[in-house]
Design a protein around this nucleic acid. Structure first.
Lengths: 335, 335
DNA sequence: CCTCCCTCTGAGAGCGCTCTCAAACATACC
DNA sequence: GGTATGTTTGAGAGCGCTCTCAGAGGGAGG
């Protein structure tokens, strides 16, 4: 069985360089190519990635960095959806995907990632305003695509949504329903999405002439904080709650039910993400759909395109969002 | 800045071989070691994994294979929990983790995995009775640890639980409550866990003198089949349901509630896994706790130990399970 | 017929590391 | 003092691949 290029070369009576050309698409005469391909066909030759990497500097392996705390990873299928989108693209076009989770400090993770030297580029879920990992990757010479971005990431490649505008839309939807005591359970403050959605909420409240700070309770994107924050908001007597994501909203719903209140009659409830959980709640949750799977796909495509033609400059993609209205805000709807 | 071993060698006035010994723990005099370490300290040298791999055949990279359909990956935080356990161990002891999901056919995935040649070993979630991917990996010379195993995997290393016994215990718990019309929503048939839990259910029913086939409805571990299967079981007039996992149970609960029935008064409900969702349901779900995170940890440890000393023979770990009784079967409990 | 150019191919130099081998030196024993 | 034994080190041969360079061969143009 042929194990190396030299084996193949010998079997097909050409030089190693020619076999390499056949495999990597160099200029080879039609006849030679056919003969070599025939030999390759009959054997289960697989190029050695390490050797290829050492010689060419490329491996076809892409890194995916999701440096989040375990509970967040669990509560929120957001990351699974993202991962899935990314891997859909990579499965077709790259040789592999290395995953980096939040098991170690960001500094250590950064060190490992850069130290491995086995990845052609990385995709990073960049959720933090202040993030040494993202800063380190952007400062390195490793091609990087961010999912989400800070306003300071001017020269970076990224895939993102308009969090401020989307949060404004959700809040406005609640206000348009006639609610005047609209609460907001924030995402993790310090995260871009959390802060921006809060900004969007405030903008909508102010535009409507409502007090924007009265009904804001801090959360962190997890379900438990949804429960706790909802309790506080109910004490304040809100008639609507906009949660920074669906996981939080599911916690809030539980608390509202426990208080014997009706959604949406007593309290209208809206989330953000439109993950599967949103339509599974009862009543089904009004939420802002962001195509998480699409974000995964786009970010992977952006990275591959960046790797193919670095001279193209940074890739920047802003994906659309869509308000999905369900019974948690508009009770009369079916479905 | 030192980039290669030769750079370090020159800076510290020894040979490349000696620097390599210092880094990889060969025998070096105390003085030389100190001098070399000092030089390394002052530089941000990182060994090139590709080169190391080419020369030694080892990379420190481990593969994690979870070849499941996207909906399953979403519905079930099982895989996230598993992944988390695995990565906890690998983060400390290996350089990286390559993730292989179910984007392509098992045959193609197998080919990629073996072809990459960049992994020292793999951990595979082996849920299928008939699985060419698992068969292929076991037949290859790539060190492999299974999570879950078939009875035919005699010489393989694996981490697993006693599905039959655990399912028997859950079913017996329901019977002991005085229920006689105990239904079972199976997991995916064709999966080891699905089949084994069905076997355990049957065993318990038979032992209690109950008809074991009357109330069995096929599911596939996803929430939607839980809803549908529960509908059928309710028509058959069951007074208890054992679901093959928690995701299915959450679907069943929804359907039971929709029918205006009370859990546990009218129908006692039990699941399997004890994922976060189990305690979040109302009423909280009685379920069989299998330490998924622990399975991840154990499988990663087993693989690393296998890599360190292959002569030790296959590693086999059977983890304990624990029946967690909550209000979905015993209404009077608190919590 | 000679030159120029284009296409196809092979030789060979690395990529950065590990690991074997043997040399150099130090220590212990008879 | 001579031999045996042990410890520390350096030289150098690869690992399997890519890629540059130059040579061989053939066709076109003068």
């Amino acid at each position: 069985m042929a194990r190396t290029l030299d084996d193949l070369a010998e079997l097909s009576g050409v030089s190693r360089a020619t076999v390499s050309r056949v495999i990597n698409g160099g200029s080879v005469s039609e006849e030679t190519r056919r003969r070599v391909l025939e030999v390759i066909e009959g054997t289960n030759y697989r190029p050695n990635l390490a050797a290829r990497s050492l010689a060419s500097g490329r491996t076809g392996v892409v890194g995916v960095v999701m440096h989040v705390a375990p509970p967040v990873l669990f509560e929120d299928s957001y990351f699974v959806a993202l991962l899935h989108g990314v891997s859909d693209v990579l499965a077709d076009r790259a040789s592999g995907m290395m995953l980096w989770l939040g098991n170690r400090s960001k500094e250590e993770t950064l060190d490992r990632i850069l130290g491995t030297g086995l990845m052609d580029g990385v995709i990073v879920s960049a959720d933090n305003l202040d993030d040494p990992l993202v800063d380190g990757l952007l400062a390195s010479d490793l091609p990087t695509v961010l999912i989400g971005h800070r306003r300071s990431d001017l020269t970076a490649s990224y895939v993102d949504i308009d969090n401020i505008g989307a949060a404004d839309t959700v809040t406005t939807h609640l206000i348009d329903l006639g609610r005047t005591r609209v609460g907001h359970i924030t995402g993790r403050l310090g995260s871009v999405a959390g802060e921006d959605r809060l900004t969007g909420y405030r903008r909508a409240m102010q535009r409507a002439g409502l007090e924007p700070e009265l009904f804001v309770v801090e959360g962190d994107f997890t379900r438990p904080t949804g429960v706790a924050a909802a309790a506080k908001l109910l004490e304040l007597g809100v008639d609507a709650i906009f949660c920074a994501n669906d996981a939080t909203a599911s916690g809030a719903l539980e608390r509202i039910n426990a208080a014997g209140l009706d959604v949406p009659k007593d309290v209208a409830l809206a989330g953000f993400d439109d993950l599967p959980v949103a339509s599974e709640l009862s009543p089904p949750l009004t939420t802002m759909r962001q195509g998480v799977h699409a974000q995964g796909i786009e970010s992977a495509s952006a990275l591959l395109s960046l790797l193919e033609s670095p001279e193209g400059g940074p890739r920047r993609v802003l994906l659309p969002t869509e308000l999905v209205i369900r019974q948690s805000t508009v009770g009369g709807l079916s479905g």
